Computed example of a mutant assay.
Amino acid sequence: MSDDSRPHLVVLTGAGISAESGIQTFRAADGLWADEPVEAVATPEGWARDPERVLRFYDARRDQVRGARPNAAHRALAELEADGFRVSVVTQNIDDLHERAGSRSVLHLHGEILMARSSVDAKLRYPLSRGGIRLGDVCDKGAQLRPDVVWFGEAVPAYPEACDIVAEADLLLVVGTSLAVMPAAMLLDQAPFGAPCALVDPEAHALAPAGVAKIARPAGEGVPALVRHWRETRALSMPEGRLD
Rank of each mutant, 00 (worst) to 15 (best):
V200K: 06
G84F: 09
H74R: 10
S88Y: 13
P202Q: 04
L80I: 11
E203G: 07
A34D: 01
R234K: 14
V200R: 00
G31K: 09
V175A: 08
L32M: 14
E81A: 14
P7G: 04
R228N: 10
G220Y: 08
K214P: 02
G132A: 15
K141G: 14
C163E: 15
A235P: 01
P239T: 05
C197S: 10
A48M: 11
S118A: 08
A60F: 05
L226C: 01
V54D: 11
Y126F: 15
F152L: 12
Y126P: 05
V38M: 13
H205N: 12
E52H: 14
V212G: 02
Q92S: 10
A122Y: 03
E168W: 02
D189C: 08
V11T: 15
C163D: 07
E112D: 01
F57C: 02
E161H: 12
E39A: 13
V174T: 09
D59L: 13
V89G: 01
L80D: 00
F26A: 14
A82I: 07
A78T: 07
A235I: 05
G136P: 05
F26M: 13
E161P: 00
A185I: 02
L226K: 06
G16W: 00
R27C: 07
D170G: 00
L32G: 08
E99Y: 01
P218N: 04
A29H: 09
D189S: 15
K214R: 15
A122P: 07
A216M: 03
E45T: 09
P202V: 03
P218F: 03
K123Q: 12
A34R: 13
R66G: 05
